[in-house]
Design a protein around this nucleic acid. Sequence first.
DNA 1: TATTGTTATACTCTATAACTATA
DNA 2: TATAGTTATAGAGTATAACAATA
Lengths: 147, 147
Amino acid sequence: MSSHGDTVAAAIGTLLRRDVRQRIYAQLTEGLGDAVNESTYPVLSGLERFGASTAAELSTAVGLDRSVVSRHANILERAELLKRVPDERDRRWIALILTDRGQETVAVMRERLNSLIEAFLDEWPDEQAAVFATILTAFTENGPFAN
Amino acid sequence: MSSHGDTVAAAIGTLLRRDVRQRIYAQLTEGLGDAVNESTYPVLSGLERFGASTAAELSTAVGLDRSVVSRHANILERAELLKRVPDERDRRWIALILTDRGQETVAVMRERLNSLIEAFLDEWPDEQAAVFATILTAFTENGPFAN
DNA sequence: TATTGTTATACTCTATAACTATA
DNA sequence: TATAGTTATAGAGTATAACAATA
């Protein structure tokens, strides 16, 4: 009878806290310009993950309405982080694609997150870090809150 | 050269996503009345964690302005989940305390979270679950995003 | 003077509705 | 007609400012 549930539940509860979340995003987006923040992050990050996408496609992927994606795209376009191009598949559609600068920005944010976590994990034996990575991934992909 | 950093970073990124967070809160608060939702949750949960507190005290603990805590307290008070009582320490202050019903509500939410996570962890060898719990707790308490 | 609780106000983010264009 | 993109509008949540009450 393990019962690490309470411990993990408390930690998850902390991660979900608004102030914690804001601190994380603030660190990742610091110095990248006003256009890059907790709200626009999903659009930037989503374009990097899924490649060129329409606002409607991206909206389902990131859990926002397409009107919201369109609005964030305006902000990111003005900052020259993405651009709009005709979508070959359907002339009604407009594809959002990252500019070089947009790709660099996403790379910076990913690198920041990766290296902060890497530094933290270095404190633990590799075998334990591997177990942690495996179970955390399973939790987000197949756990009780996976879609 | 471990490099579980990328894996963990991706999982953390998922946990931070808005749609994931909303799904979690929706499950925890389902059926507990309109007063209990993602916004009022921190106030309820905070009162349980810290005990009777003023709006100002709670606001620093949960990362909200005291005016916001006061507003949420109104909603929770109308739902009879908390009540306001004079604070012995200072006659300017008003202590927020959970009613019996409020305590039951928090217990239900905690129990839901605990048992969902417990069920997930039961799928793993206890030793690995213990490692996961230990490292995750260290991450939230002393990791790169701890306050 | 300083700090609390509360309320009024403004701002941000998001969803809904309405419009245009294309299929 | 159906669905995309976009924009106008409304709603929810929060921070700021201002007020009365108490220290």
